[in-house]
Each structure stands twice: as C-alpha cells, then as structure tokens.
Design a protein around this nucleic acid. Structure first.
Lengths: 226, 226
DNA sequence: AGACCGTCATAAAAAATTCATAAAAATGAC
DNA sequence: GTCATTTTTATGAATTTTTTATGACGGTCT
C-alpha cells in the first residue's frame, strides 16, 4: 500500500526535521540521501508524494525530477522541491522540470504540511477523504482503518462510531446523541448498545495501545481524547 | 485570565519599542530580560504568546523555547523568535525548537503585530462554550474543568454544582435551591448532602488555592465569590 | 459457517447519600 | 468581655445506589 512520503535530502538535520514533523502529522516517511538511493527505493514501492532537495550530491534534484516525469510509473506522483533562497531565481526551471510546488529553505513545518495537503488534495483523491487522529487513519472511501500503516479490522458500526468521534474530537456525547448520529434518528436501539460497541472499538484498537483514545465520561457519555 | 504577551529580550531599547507598540495595539505586555526571569514569571501565570530574542545572556532563546515545549503546561503557547539577520541561517534550528514564527531584526512594529495576530488566530482554540471565573474554566462541550491550564478532575455532581455556581456568581443559594437546580426538582435528597458535595468541590480545587471561591454564608447557604 | 448485531445478565467500578462526630460560629446569661 | 449553650457547618467513613464494563447468547444477513 503506497501511503508514504519519500524525502530525498542529503542534509541529515533537514531530513530529521521533515521526518519529525511529517510523522507527527500522521504520515509515514521514507528517506533517501541521494537521487540514486531514491531511484532504488522507487523500484519497489511508489510513494504518494516526493519531496526533493534541489541540490544533491551526485544527481541533482532537478535531474531526478525530470527522470521521474519521463517514467510512466512515476510520472503522476506529485513532487515538492526544496530550494535555498539563493536558488530562487531557478524556480522557473524547476517548474519546467515538472515540479508541482516548491518550498524555500528555511521553511516552517507547518507551511510544508499545508502545502502537502493542498497538493494531495489537488492531485489524488484518496487522501482527500481520510481522517487522521493520534496515528489512527480512516479511509472513508474504502472504509478501511489504519493505525500507522497497519490495517485494523473492525465492524461497520465501530467504523461509523469512530468516524463520528474523529470528526468531533474532544467533545462529550451522550448515548442518545451517539445513537442519533451513528445509528440514525429513526433506528431504535437500546442506549446500552452503545456501551457494547464502544467496548468492541476499544478492543480492536488495543493491540496498538490506542484503546484509551475513547474516554468514558461518567454520568454523561463518551469522548475522543484530545 | 492570562491575556498578556511575554517579551523576553535583553536589549532595553527593543523592549521599550515592543512595549510601546504592543500596548498601543491594546495588549498587555510583561517583560523579562533573561530566559531565567521568564521562567520564573511563567510559574505564576501563562501568557497567550511569547516573544523571545534569539540571543540572550545566559540561557539562549532557543534553549528557552525548547524547554517550554517540553513542559506540558507551556507546550502550546505560541512563540515568536526575534533574530538578527546574521542569524538567519539558523532559522531552521529555531523551527526545530518548536518556534511558530520568527521576525528578523530590524523589524517594523506593524509587521510584528500582523504576525502576532495571524499566529493567535491560528492557534487559539475556538472557545466553544466555556465558563470562566477566577482562573477556573469549564469547557462544557468536552466536560472538562481547568484551573489556568491544568486539568482538574472531579465527579459529575461536583461538576454540575460548579457549572451552576459559575453561571450565577456572587449570589447566595440555600441548600434547597441548590438541590432543585443541581439535582433536579424531582430528586429527593437530604439537604445536608449539599454540604458533602461542597466539601468535595473545595477539596479538588484546593491544590490551586481555589477552594475559597466557594464561600459559606452561615445560616443561609453558599456563594461563589472571588 | 462466519461476521456482525442487539440485548441481556452480571461483575466491577465509581460515585452518591447518609450518618456520626468534630469543629466552628452565634447567642445569651452573667 | 467571658463562658456555657445552642445552632450550624465541616469532615471522615460506612453503606447504598448508580453507572459502566464485560462476557455470553440468539438472531440475521451474506
């Protein structure tokens, strides 16, 4: 399953920064320190996005981008290029090379992540409909749940329940609200049924230590921990 | 409630400039001339934003920022760093330290204020429905209680009681009124039960010295008072 | 058969209420 | 004013009640 971001960057500090901030955003990062290494990695598995440094020892970032564009297999993967301010004049050339966006160093992780999101929204649809929270990712379109990159199997009701919570984190809902929202206003179910599905949801999340993301608020209901 | 901006800067001229322009913008400013002083100030009351100079005698601004990020109490306060142009190359490291934005000296007050506004807009959580009184904050949506930014755990009845008092501060209620409002008209409980819950409420507020906000009015009942 | 659902019964946990008593404050006689 | 008395509140602890967690069962749909 290609759901990772490839970072091609020779500076270990920047690599680490990217790794840290992207991971915190719930993404998986694979790193390469040269264009050549990147090409080897790309033979195996395709990422959903590539971040490349303009300047690289050996084959340059621009050259790598151009070659990726030529290969049919990789031609549609969006590319973000990192440039130093002094290289700004060369922006034009990078767009020529088929780069989708560029970010000038030094950059804020926030900005980068915003650009990544925008780019993924523009290019590929699947990421569009996914919710991420505390390492849990829900793919709404395919109805699949992941913790990090591991598939988590759960029943449809558990999934819907989790979707609702992840769309409304850190808010308490009482059982009748949950029944309304998750089961539907017209369906009549015992309120205690909610308890059982909460239990089942926690159970499937437990192997990843994510069972406590759903908190009990005694006397009121349940809440997705912030 | 802490609604001030903390400026950590050793140069008195810049301090004054910041003080002047921020005050004119209607903000409250507290100044520290070293990281150490800042840390002492932060023990009392948390600001809504911190402006730190990169270069400081003693502990550096970056170091301060890092330590603030580590402490849960301060980890969410946005930080703006002031850097000299020569230090620009190090910007990257400052982002690593969790800085949210930076401003290069010399800067125009206008620019700084624009950045502060943008940052506060980005970070400040939309306070959905919350009650605030004497440093105590009740988030009704998430059903959480805080003193300053510390979470306070309490039982459901204590929470309801506190909600009622905070919606009607400075007013005395006798026990039967409290039973009516908090327990509900239909519930039958001994009036003395109120005493016990008042006691428990005071107990959980005590660690923050907020137990006195609930006053006993002898012969009548209780009142919330600052 | 297998997966999933809703309900129930019961165990476990948490919180509420009551009660007994200590402490504090008000009252009134001196 | 002081002391004893009375009234009221604070507090700790036992007990009861409420609420939630959990395991199991029968039914349904595929």
């Amino acid at each position: 399953m290609a759901r990772y971001i490839l970072v091609v960057e020779d500076d270990p500090d920047i690599r680490e920064l990217l790794h840290f901030s992207l991971t915190r955003d719930g993404r998986t990062v694979v790193e390469a320190e040269s264009a050549e290494d990147a090409q080897i990695l790309l033979k195996r598995d395709l990422p959903e996005l590539i971040i490349v440094d303009w300047m690289l020892p050996g084959m340059s970032g621009v050259k790598l981008a151009k070659s990726l564009r030529k290969d049919e297999r990789t031609s549609k993967i969006p590319i973000i290029m990192l440039t130093a301010r002094s290289e700004e004049a060369d922006k034009l050339r990078s767009f020529e090379a088929g780069i989708d966006d560029y970010v000038t160093k030094p950059f804020s992780p926030k900005e980068l992540i915003a650009r990544i999101k925008a780019l993924l929204r523009r290019t590929s649809a699947p990421e569009d409909d996914s919710l991420v929270f505390a390492g849990i990712r829900l793919e709404l379109a395919s109805h699949k749940a992941f913790v990090n990159e591991d598939r988590v199997a759960m029943g449809p009701t558990e999934f819907k329940l989790l979707v609702f919570f992840m769309r409304n984190p850190d808010r308490v809902f009482d059982r009748s609200q949950l029944v309304d929202e998750v089961w539907g206003r017209s369906v009549v179910v015992e309120e205690r049924t909610v308890d059982v599905h909460i239990l089942r949801l926690r159970k499937v999340l437990k192997p990843w230590g994510r069972d406590h993301v759903i908190e009990t608020v005694r006397g009121v209901g349940y809440r997705l921990a912030s």
